[in-house]
Amino acid sequence: MDGTTELHQTPLYDLHLSLGAKMVPFAGYDMPVQYRMGVMKEHLHTRAACGLFDVSHMGQVILRPLSGDVADAALALERLVPVDVLGLKTGRQRYAMFTDEAGGMLDDLMVARWDDALFLVVNAACKDADIAHLRAALSDTCEILVQDRALIALQGPDAAAALARLVPGIETMRFMDARAFGDLWISRSGYTGEDGYEISLPAAGVHDFATRLLDMPEVAPIGLGARDSLRLEAGLCLYGHDIDTGTTPVAAGLTWAIQKTRRAGGARAGGFPGADVILAQLSDGAETARVGLRPEGRAPMREGVALFADGTGGEPIGRVTSGGFGPSVGGPVAMGYLPAPLSSPGTRVYGEVRGKRMAVDVAALPFVQQGYKR
């Protein structure tokens, strides 16, 4: 960021400082990258017990249909995303992505359906552009209400037991359920591969709510460092790294998010930006594919490492888009893109690190077993 640009602060900024957080610039905000426990222990604590994340930098938007019929908002949003929003049941949430005319992704997001509106959570770095995109395309159909609320995530196998002490009833929710508990808008979802919840609540109440959670012995504060290693082990994409306008949902391995009704022959096939490109790739495949990667040895392969078919010569055939050490895996893990014919698990390629080519094997994603409450 430009050094003259003032960073935004989330409503939990003072709490982060009191907990000894190391703060860093991220998506225009001053955010905690780690606390006193350190990234490795924070990661493992989340996998074993429960971690609390501040994600208030994310964008929260309500689409309220002008007609009063939430189906009209769903059909309107389908003009921008390739997923089945109309078929989303009340009280459920779905992963989606905004696409452009070339089939690339402008952002990925979560969409929840309420009785009278849709609730969207978009990425922090893209939220201004996303909101402008929504207003330009949907203002004829929806009132677009940007929410000034806090957002926290409670993740890990003990998340349900911890949150239920403060919000009885959340333990009955299934993965991707989305419900309102008074002023709390809660979904059973997250970005770690573990069971957990994302909780939107008024900014004025988040300090007290977060403190009550952190007073529980199984709950620890977790920063951006562990959030990244957790999502990488879970095989989850980070926008601007693993996915962007240069990658289609098919190349990115996100075809599971495009329901049959939006595909060729479906009841509401196409009708979204880049549909001709994406539908053709759904039929014929993409030239490249996002893959999991397991480098040999202990040295991580970071974003930007070039990938080669041969250990000694030749031109690059792909690159690493996310990489680091996987504490739960006990070794380096990465994701990247390779030509589709070389994307099968077990295929050996080579990453060039400091001028030396190191062996790396294509691996199945995710690297860790998911803990979602199905």
Rank of each mutant, 00 (worst) to 15 (best):
L138R: 10
S56I: 09
M97E: 13
V250D: 00
F53C: 02
V320G: 06
Q93R: 09
A299T: 15
H45S: 13
T192D: 12
G205Q: 11
P11K: 00
H16M: 05
R92T: 09
R94M: 05
I222W: 03
L120P: 02
G3F: 06
D84M: 12
Q155G: 13
R165G: 08
V360T: 15
G190W: 13
S67D: 03
Y35I: 10
P32N: 09
L365R: 09
G3D: 04
D84G: 10
E171A: 11
E315Y: 00
R227N: 07
L342E: 10
C126H: 13
A125E: 05
D30N: 14
V55M: 10
G91K: 00
T192G: 05
G313H: 09
A161G: 09
D310T: 08
G28C: 01
Q369Y: 07
K41C: 03
F175N: 07
D108I: 09
L109V: 01
Y197L: 02
L80G: 06
T141I: 14
G225D: 06
P300M: 03
P11F: 00
D195N: 11
A309C: 05
A71G: 09
G190S: 14
G38I: 11
F308M: 06
P202Y: 01
S189R: 00
P202D: 01
G253H: 04
A136V: 01
T4E: 13
P273W: 09
G371N: 07
G68I: 04
E315V: 02
V83I: 15
A359Y: 03
Q281K: 03
G169P: 00
M110T: 11
L238P: 10
L77A: 11
A180H: 10
R354P: 00
G190N: 10
E287K: 07
Y95E: 15
Q259D: 14
A150L: 05
R212I: 01
H45E: 09
L44G: 11
L145D: 15
P295E: 15
G323L: 12
T90I: 05
A275I: 07
L338C: 03
T248K: 07
Y13W: 12
A234Q: 12
K22M: 15
A76C: 12
V111T: 04
S283D: 14
F308C: 10
M31P: 01
L80K: 06
T211C: 00
S322I: 05
G271Q: 05
S283G: 04
I170R: 06
A71S: 14
I243Q: 00
R302P: 06
R231S: 13
D183C: 08
A220W: 14
A252R: 05
Q147E: 15
D183F: 10
P316G: 02
G196C: 11
E303W: 12
G38L: 11
V362D: 07
M301A: 03
A96P: 01
E101W: 10
P327V: 12
G225H: 06
G253F: 01
R294N: 03
A21H: 12
V305C: 03
M40Y: 15
G59H: 08
W114G: 12
V320A: 03
F367C: 07
S139L: 06
A363H: 13
S56F: 04
A164H: 12
D84F: 14
A220G: 00
D215Y: 05
R94W: 07
G223K: 10
Y95L: 10
A267T: 15
Y35S: 09
F26K: 02
